[in-house]
Design a protein around this nucleic acid. Structure first.
Lengths: 111, 111
DNA sequence: TCATTATTTCGATAAATATAGAAACATGGA
DNA sequence: TCCATGTTTCTATATTTATCGAAATAATGA
């Protein structure tokens, strides 16, 4: 990951509404939620929600998938892992640092 | 960690200069670097650097320690761990998710 | 096709942020 | 005490960002 990329990604999360959206999607697992459902749960206006989803999507933190007339958004776990790796890169010049962690989605059995 | 806190923390990192400062300090380990040294390495003006260090410090991502007439800044690893935990909280409703990682400073033997 | 529902774009406004030169403020040594 | 060095605050400016109402754009089912 490059610096520019990491900044985009961090900026995407550094905002109340977007952080709430992302965390909600992380909790939902791979299935995700439709835009309308997200807006309902978080009480965010249509235009505002669309704006923020675009930001998150552009950063690669979430992905969209069409299903009927609904668009489902879900968290992209790999992107978060890449960020964690970048932030802890060369920690203490590589000496005695606990390796960075990994976040993976559930195995698909979760509802 | 609370949402407001996490946003502050992410916003602190979501900026070219500050991300560079933080990563530099992570790589330096607990010893850290003096303000002047940071400014030299990253080619940042005094006022700008001071502004950014204040932001990082306020977010708790770095800490300062006076030594002679120098002020050394170093990374606060615990704060980063708290953030990682927050971001991955209740992932997939707790089902089958890899637990969040941990980042720890070197054991003190690194120069 | 037409009506309905879901989502995005447009336009405009208010607020926050990054930047740096210059001045002010510490701190330690002579 | 006075000087030199290191760091922060002040002031001002240009840029970016969040927000939402209203209109526009898809996509589906009848």
């Amino acid at each position: 990951m490059e610096t520019k990329n990491a900044v985009t990604l961090l900026a995407a999360l550094a905002q109340d509404t977007r952080l709430a959206i992302y965390r909600l999607l992380v909790q939902q697992g791979p299935e995700g939620l439709a835009v309308g459902q997200i807006g309902e749960r978080l009480a965010v206006a249509n235009a505002t929600l669309s704006f923020h989803l675009k930001e998150l999507s552009h950063a690669g933190l979430v992905q969209a998938r069409q299903e009927g007339r609904f668009i489902y958004y879900s968290a992209n776990y790999e992107q978060m892992n890449a960020l964690l790796g970048f932030l802890t890169e060369n920690c203490c010049r590589g000496e005695a640092c606990t390796p960075a962690s990994s976040l993976s989605p559930c195995d698909g059995t979760c509802s």
